[in-house]
Structure formats: C-alpha cells, structure tokens
Amino acid sequence: MNEPARATRIQVAISHHDPYVATGIAALLRSRADFAVLAGDSPEAGSADVLVADHARGLQPALPRRRGARPVAVLVVSDQRTSWQIRRAVDAGVRGYLLQDTTAEELSEAVRSIAAGRRYLSCAVADLLLDSLVQAVPTARELDVLQLIARGLSNKDIGRLLGIGEGTVKTHVKAILAKLGESTRIGAIAEALRRGLLPDEAPALPAPPLPAASAPAFSCA
C-alpha cells in the first residue's frame, strides 16, 4: 500500500516544554503513515490541523495563523492531572486532553478524532473532569484571596494588598470555605492543593495600593 500523500496527511505541530516528551510524541506519530509531524516553531506549523502541546501552551497556543484560517485544534498531553487544571483547559477551548502515560494507539486516535472535528478525553481525564463539574468554582477574586490565605496573611493584610475592605475579604473567605467544603483555612488550603487551585510556587505578592497624596511636611530650625 502506498504511503498517503503529504497533502492528505493530518498535519500535526508539536509544542511541548519538555523536549523528551516532545521527541517521544513526534516519534510515535511519525510511525503512523497518516501523520505529517511539524515542529511547533517551524513556518509550516501555522497551517497545522492539530497542535499537541503541554498544559500551559495548550491554553494559549502561539502558532502563527494565516489571515482567515480557522483556529488550530489543540490536544494537551500533560502530567497536570487535577480536576481543576483539566477543567481550565476544556473551558479554554482545548479539544482533547491526555495524560503523559498515554499509549501510542490512544495518542494516534486522539489526533485523528480532533482533526475530524471531534473531542477526545482519555477515560481517566473524563472521570476527573466529571468530578470538577459537581464542584463549585471559586471566582477570580476568590482565587486571589485563596492564594494570600495560603501565604498566611490575615484578612486585614489581604484587604490592604488587594485594595478591598476587611469586611469584603471576610465575605470572600466565607465563600471559599463553602465552595471547598471546609470549615477552616488550613482545611481549605489542603483541599485547594488537592484540586490544583493553588500554584506549585507561591506567586509574588501584589503591591499595596498607594496612599492618598498628602501635603509635604516641612521643618524649620
């Protein structure tokens, strides 16, 4: 049987932060006759049918696209396996999600499905996504407060850093505890870590709002 012509192959661009994972994905796909594998930074990548990427790059694909071209369909292959991380990816428009221990057969099937306009989630990912759908999702501001709670800050300090009143902070904390199903800050932090709501590294603290300008002070001898 003749190998499919390049024009009829599924064009797959690969952009993964781990070069070993990227090399492995490329080798697996090149072993299939119906794929043409492109480097994510190559000029041809802008016309790819599917982009295989890590979690961060999959949420914000940076492939140059021709004017009027449809957005690239993204397949995430990642070790990020918490329900919240998967939920974020799906909400961002990712068409498929696999864990890095996927098989060559499942990787190939996922790429073919996405190229055909369908979605593809591995069974493990689908189970995690279903778990996230029954969990209340903290708002962006609540996540800001949650990160500062994890830094050990008091309500007063959180309010000062975010430029909001202490009473507003208390309202956010109460909502966070309810959404995470916990009664204490320590329990909320543990549950947030389990769900992947907190980053692996603590973010830089935001700068506090500048105080209102006041008249300069003068002294005289």
Rank of each mutant, 00 (worst) to 15 (best):
S122I: 05
D131H: 08
D131Q: 13
A136G: 09
P138D: 15
D157H: 11
E142V: 12
L133H: 13
Y120I: 04
G152W: 02
L161H: 07
G163M: 07
G165T: 15
R160I: 01
E142K: 04
A150G: 03
N155R: 08
A124K: 14
L121I: 03
C123K: 12
T171H: 14
Q147W: 01
T171V: 15
I176C: 00
L129S: 02
K174D: 09
V125E: 02
R151L: 10
A126T: 02
A140F: 13
V125A: 05
E166L: 04
G167K: 15
S132Y: 00
G163L: 10
K170I: 13
V169C: 02
S154A: 08
L143A: 07
L161T: 05
D157L: 14
S122L: 05
L129Q: 01
G167R: 15
T168Q: 10
N155T: 15
L129D: 03
L129T: 05
D144L: 09
V145E: 06
G163C: 14
S122K: 04
V125P: 00
T139F: 11
C123A: 14
I158Q: 02
I149Y: 07
D144I: 00
S132Q: 06
D144T: 02
D157Y: 02
L130V: 05
K156D: 09
G165H: 12
C123V: 15
V125Y: 00
T171A: 08
V134C: 13
G163K: 11
S122W: 05
E166W: 02
G163I: 10
I164E: 09
D144K: 10
V125N: 03
V169D: 01
S122T: 04
T139G: 15
L128I: 07
K174W: 06
A178N: 07
V134T: 10
G152C: 07
V137W: 09
R141P: 01
